[in-house]
Each structure stands twice: as structure tokens, then as C-alpha cells.
């Protein structure tokens, strides 16, 4: 068991990161904390993905001299996916931060439960 974890330590760390992030996203009441949690969760996914594409002893998939052999390089697909994922994650974070700013300006707190309590009666009645 322990040997298995040590052999796959990237995956183990990825799982820890994902669960920690998920917990923060779910249970923290502060919006910024929730956002940080989301970023940690995504980082866990990216680590998992990047570690799958890595093959020890091989180089980054950049052609320097021809002829090149496919067996010299690591798998480039996961790296591409991680890049795309990071872009997505950054844009989501930006949108969420701007919404948080708007909420803070109106309610002067970032505690989601407190904000909800402040606006509860208005939500029900219109």
C-alpha cells in the first residue's frame, strides 16, 4: 500500500490537492477562500494530467535537430490540455473575483451566508 503510494506520489498529491480544494469550495463561507479552493482543486487535476504525460528520462517535446525519434520525448498532449485548463481556470477566477467585488460593494462583507441573510427577504418578495 505505502509502496504503491510512494511509487505514484504525483497522483497521491493530486488527490490530496483535489479533495482539499473541493472541501474549501464547499465548506468555506468566505468567497475569496472558496475561489482559492477552486484554484487548488483545478491544480490537483492539472498535476494529475501532467504527471500522466511525463515519461522519466525523456526530453520536452521540442524538436532541436532532425532526424528526431518519437521515443526521445514525453507525451505532449497532456501538456497542451493543462495549458488550456489553466487558461479556463484563470478566466473563471477573474469573473468570480469581479462578482465578489460587486457583492462586497453592496453588502460590505464577503461571508456568503451573511450576504444571503441580508438579501433573503428581498429574494422571496418581489
Amino acid at each position: 500500500m505505502i509502496k504503491g503510494i510512494l511509487n505514484n506520489y504525483e497522483e497521491a498529491v493530486a488527490v490530496i490537492l483535489f479533495v482539499a480544494g473541493l472541501g474549501m469550495l464547499l465548506f468555506r463561507r468566505n468567497l475569496i477562500m472558496k475561489l482559492i479552493g477552486m484554484n487548488i482543486m483545478d491544480t490537483g487535476c492539472f498535476l494529475f494530467l501532467a504527471s500522466m504525460g511525463y515519461i522519466s528520462g525523456r526530453k520536452a517535446p521540442i524538436l532541436t535537430a532532425l532526424p528526431a525519434q518519437g521515443t526521445d520525448y514525453v507525451n505532449p498532449v497532456p501538456a497542451g490540455l493543462v495549458l488550456t485548463g489553466i487558461v479556463v481556470s484563470v478566466s473563471v477566477t477573474a469573473v468570480m473575483l469581479s462578482l465578489s467585488v460587486r457583492l462586497y460593494r453592496r453588502y460590505h462583507t464577503l461571508d456568503i451566508d451573511a450576504i444571503y441573510a441580508l438579501s433573503k427577504h428581498k429574494l422571496e418578495d418581489r
Binding site: M38, D42, M96, L99, I112
Partner: peptide, 27 residues
């Protein structure tokens, strides 16, 4: 309005949870 911003934040939190899990599933 205040409540749409709040609704948007709640929607985003639920959806980020969903997309995080979906990303994990794809990976």
C-alpha cells in the same frame, strides 16, 4: 441588482463544483 449578483455567485459556486468534477472525470 444585489440579488442577481448573489444569484450569479451561488450559480457559479455550484457550477464550478460541477465543472471541477467533470474535468476530473475527463482526466
Amino acid at each position: 441588482t444585489g440579488r442577481t449578483t448573489l444569484a450569479a455567485v451561488r450559480y457559479m459556486v455550484m457550477n464550478l463544483l460541477g465543472s471541477g468534477l467533470f474535468l476530473l472525470g475527463v482526466v
